[in-house]
Amino acid sequence: MEAKPKLLSILDGVSVVMLLIATGMVFFYAPVEAVMGLVQKVFYFHVAAGWVGMLSFLTAAIVGIILLRTGDRKWDIVGLASVELGLVFSFINVVTGSIWARPIWNTWWTWDPRLTTATIMILIYAAYLMLRSGIEDPDRRARFGAIYAILGFLSVPLTFFSARLFRGIHPVVIGSNQPGAEGQFDMTPLMLQTFFFSLITFTVIFVDLLWHRVRLGRLQDRVEQLKLKLNV
């Protein structure tokens, strides 16, 4: 196994420290929201996880394009890694959103555009994993995965748009001006700082985890190749 790069160790440390600071900010720096109370604190990491989920799927689509262009299978490892991470973070996003919605919207679930889009996104990338698991030839698996990642990512904005033409009740917290969205609140400067710090923190964590997952993918590749060579 290749030695762990120094930069990765540093990144590990930075991620942990930033996550600790962000958590501290959420609980002790940002004020308690006046109407919703403590549950609003979930919001910071909820949005950050959603952002990282989108970022992962975007990465998978871009890497897919590069893979089809170059035909180099090392990009497939990155693609699979980012889809896996995207699923973990989208899951966090949807479940925390649902937990927040219970006291605020008085329901665990509504067919709100963002909620719907996030859920369909999870289904798309679960299908991605199923597609891959049905293909043995590694080159074909890489190509099909890349194509599906591109198609899936293209359909996401269209899904969001079509779900939005139905009326939504999701609060638009950033750049908001949507009357009628329940659970809407104005962020105080302290809240905004916490919010942006959480976004940056989760992005750093994403890079760190992606790196780890890519290394794992490479290791897997080596084991598979050695198995083929030895015929076991």
Binding site: V32, E33, A34, V35, M36, G37, L38, V39, Q40, K41, V42, I99, W100, R102, P103
Partner: peptide, 10 residues
């Protein structure tokens, strides 16, 4: 107290 009691959800 003002804010809703949502500790458990948090």
């Amino acid at each position: 107290e003002g804010p809703a009691e949502t500790f458990n959800y948090m």
